[in-house]
């Protein structure tokens, strides 16, 4: 495979690993916010912001962690036929069908971009009394989708390499 592609795969995987491992620790943030929520309810007034903050953390968690989880091979497949194929056949089929996945991610990215652009243009606020601006979480979400797309492309390159009998 061309050097540019090798470099692309190496950098994307490194970046996704780094960001994914950061996202991994967000579970503690979710845990903390919700524990604070149940604690504050018992001791003083419940807060306006806890549930929504936890929701923001949750989407950041799974979207930022998406690329890394794909890298780790955590996304299930229906492997009735898949497991019976030789590794090379698998890579061949994968390198075609991953295009469908990429198509989906492109639409997700397009929607995310459009939604974020709107949030910034109109200063969109969340529909709640706390009413935080929506653009920060939308930026994070869209970035997460982008990471997933980059990872999917890297996966495609790796599959093509495997079909050609190379290793990236």
């Amino acid at each position: 495979m061309p050097k540019a592609i090798r470099l692309y795969v190496a950098y994307v995987e490194k970046m996704n690993r780094f960001i994914g491992r950061f996202a991994m620790y967000l579970i503690f943030a979710m845990l903390g916010v919700l524990l604070y929520s149940s604690f504050s309810k018992a001791v003083f007034l419940p807060s306006l912001w806890t549930l929504e903050t936890a929701q923001f953390l949750m989407v950041a968690y799974y979207l930022l962690g998406g690329g890394y989880s794909m890298q780790l091979g955590d996304h299930v497949r229906m492997d009735l036929l898949y497991t019976t194929w030789k590794p090379r056949t698998r890579s061949l089929v994968d390198s075609i069908t991953v295009l469908f996945l990429i198509f989906y991610l492109c639409l997700l990215l397009y929607g995310g971009y459009s939604s974020t652009a709107y949030a910034i243009e109109y200063g969109e606020k969340s529909y709640s009394a706390w009413a935080p601006y929506m653009w920060p979480v939308k930026v994070v979400m869209t970035f997460g989708v982008l990471l997933m797309l980059l990872q999917a492309l890297a996966t495609l390159f790796k599959d093509i390499a495997a079909v050609r009998g190379e290793e990236i």
């Binding site: 007034l45 419940p46 306006l48 549930l51 929504e52 969340s126 529909y127 709640s128 009394a129």
Partner: peptide
Amino acid sequence: AGKFLSRFGVVPVT
């Protein structure tokens, strides 16, 4: 309404 009611201690949830 939630912003207004929070002046009386109501915690508005959406």
